[in-house]
């Protein structure tokens, strides 16, 4: 059983979004390295922005892939994206300064294998399957790497597995108080998965418009960023975490209002529901 899913035509070409998403997320993840250079933690929020850039690109990829009718629902594409992405992201993180680039390469390898298996062994025979799963694996990996970098201020593996605990006024290194040791990585995994699989699932249909779908993707990304910013209070400085939270909330409010405006643009009609006021003196 395969159901054709209608998607809107027009909008920005997919290859353009691919380049913006890939380069944008790479540059933004690398900007978190300013933390190491300047020995502060104020630049952690760039990791979250990298995740948002990757999510926008990934949503457009899912739109392309799912227009062929997988028969398994849109969320399955998001699950395989993050499932292969998280392996690449953690493996890539062990390579220090090269982490984001290695992550992209490893994710491309895992995605290519999954795509080849899907097309040539499981026989989906979808023309864009292999390239889409490569893209989705990279998107998932950059999302996990970006959000992890946002939570702990660095994309390096040793920074992700070490944290500090204050005991009797002394700061002690503890592996359990870290992004990976505290299993925060699992929360980040699900935050990324929900963000990537929701937008196209919510917007698909005959009236689908690319700008509206991608705006919802950005909104979901910022929503995940807010959660990660709150998590980051445990790992980075108070002020740095506040900066992250502020950036996330501003980004979310902007994208949310834009999304509502675009939804009203595409809607046939809408009702601005107001609360019913009690007449004075009783009815």
């Amino acid at each position: 059983m395969s159901v054709k899913i209608e998607v809107g035509a027009g909008g920005i070409p997919h290859n353009q979004i691919l380049i913006y998403g890939l380069v944008g997320s790479l540059v933004l993840v690398y900007l978190t390295y300013l933390n190491t250079v300047t020995n502060t933690q104020y630049f952690a929020f760039f990791g979250g922005l990298a995740a948002v850039a990757a999510l926008i690109w990934g949503t457009d990829t899912i739109k392309h892939l799912c227009s062929y009718g997988l028969g398994t629902g849109v969320p399955s594409a998001g699950m395989i994206a993050l499932g292969s992405g998280v392996i690449a992201a953690i493996f890539g993180a062990t390579t220090g300064i090269l982490a984001p680039i290695v992550t992209v390469i490893i994710a491309a390898i895992i995605g290519a294998v999954a795509g080849l298996m899907a097309n040539h062994v499981v026989r989906m025979d979808i023309p864009v399957m292999i390239i889409s799963l490569i893209e989705l694996a990279i998107v998932g990996a950059m999302t996990v790497l970006g959000l992890s970098a946002m939570a702990c201020g660095t994309f390096e593996f040793l920074g992700m597995i070490t944290g500090t605990v204050v005991i009797l006024g002394f700061a002690v290194e503890a592996y359990s108080a870290s992004v990976i040791g505290g299993s925060i990585i699992a929360v980040i995994f699900m935050l990324g998965a929900i963000a990537i699989q929701h937008s196209f699932n919510a917007c698909l249909g005959p009236g689908e418009q690319q700008d509206r779908t991608l705006m919802l993707a950005a909104e979901c990304g910022f929503l995940s960023m807010i959660t990660v910013a709150i998590i980051s209070f445990a790992f980075i400085g108070l002020l740095a975490a506040f900066v992250s939270l502020l950036v996330s909330i501003i980004g979310w409010i902007y994208t949310y209002t834009q999304y509502i405006a675009l939804s009203k643009r595409d809607a046939y009609a809408w009702l601005d529901a107001q609360p019913i006021l009690e007449p004075k003196g009783g009815a």
Partner: peptide, 17 residues
């Protein structure tokens, strides 16, 4: 978890629906 989801989705593609 990651490998579980990869394998589950490949199996889902095999079932198609």
């Amino acid at each position: 978890v990651g490998m579980f989801l990869m394998n589950a989705v490949l199996a889902a593609y095999n079932i198609t629906g």
